[in-house]
């Protein structure tokens, strides 16, 4: 079975970002970029499925500027077999990303698509569910364990009250939560090998998708800052403050 994995290039999770001076967006020039952490987990899961003999080929796909090749090379170094970049300078909304991925699914016919549950820049948490809807497939969103069978995949999902298990008919879409696995470190020989693996570049037009937008960002600003308070010496002083000043206990 082929597995398709979607990887997004985002501002590294360790970087503190700021609004642009004119408030029109987020300043991302000269900022360290990386693969979205949830997508690393998605790639790792696909690679483990291949190591278990359950996946035959792993295709990594990214949508965005030409530098997305870097995150695709990382996916290849982790163990993906080939990569597809759908190149655009626009920052497409999740619905458009889902449409592009759907077109790719129709071309590649994977048995399983794995995405991250959430991109840590826009914090949308939408694309996987949208892709599943467009394909009419089942969705295992926020997955913390996968068991891949012949006809079905069993997915343990992280939900507000605990864990839920669902079985989805294959083909299906899954989105990776934090505890699905721990992504491997890529070793230097694999980085070198990854340079020789195929990386194809397409345009949205090649896939017949129009980049429509339904959302305009009017303003980006920092939320009001919280002031640091005081240090208290011990538990007794803390309890007194909470009772008499803050009046919360």
């Amino acid at each position: 079975m082929k597995v398709l994995v979607a990887v997004k290039r985002v501002v590294d999770y360790n970087v503190k970002v700021y609004p642009k001076a004119d408030g029109s967006g987020v300043e991302i020039a000269n900022v360290k970029m990386s693969m979205n952490p949830f997508d690393e987990i998605a790639v790792e899961e696909a690679v483990q499925l291949k190591e278990l003999g359950k996946a035959t080929e792993i295709i990594a796909a990214s949508i965005g500027v030409s530098q997305c090749q870097e995150v695709l090379r990382t996916a290849l170094a982790m163990g993906a077999d080939r990569a597809v970049l759908i190149e655009t300078d626009a920052a497409p909304e999740p619905l458009v990303v889902a449409k592009l991925l759907k077109a790719l699914v129709e071309r590649e016919q994977p048995g399983l698509v794995i995405l991250g549950k959430q991109a840590i820049d826009d914090d949308c948490n939408q694309t996987g569910q949208m892709l599943a809807a467009l394909l009419g497939w089942g969705q295992g969103a926020f997955a913390s364990k996968l068991t891949l069978g012949e006809q079905e995949i069993e997915v343990i999902r992280e939900i507000d009250g605990g864990l839920e298990t669902v079985a989805l008919k294959l083909p299906a879409v899954v989105t990776a939560d934090l505890r699905l696995n721990e992504p491997r470190y890529v070793k230097l020989p694999n980085i070198i090998k990854a340079k020789k693996k195929p990386l194809e570049t397409l345009s949205p037009g090649d896939l017949g998708v129009v980049l429509a937008t339904q959302m305009t960002t009017l303003k980006v600003a920092e939320p009001p800052k919280r002031e640091a308070g005081i240090k208290v010496a011990d538990a007794a002083e803390l309890v007194a403050k909470l009772r008499n000043d803050a009046k919360v206990i």
Partner: peptide
């Protein structure tokens, strides 16, 4: 909120 709540985006939706 975007970027883990480190920023707030005001967005207009035409859908």
């Amino acid at each position: 909120p975007i970027y883990a709540g480190s920023m707030l985006a005001t967005v207009q939706c035409s859908a």
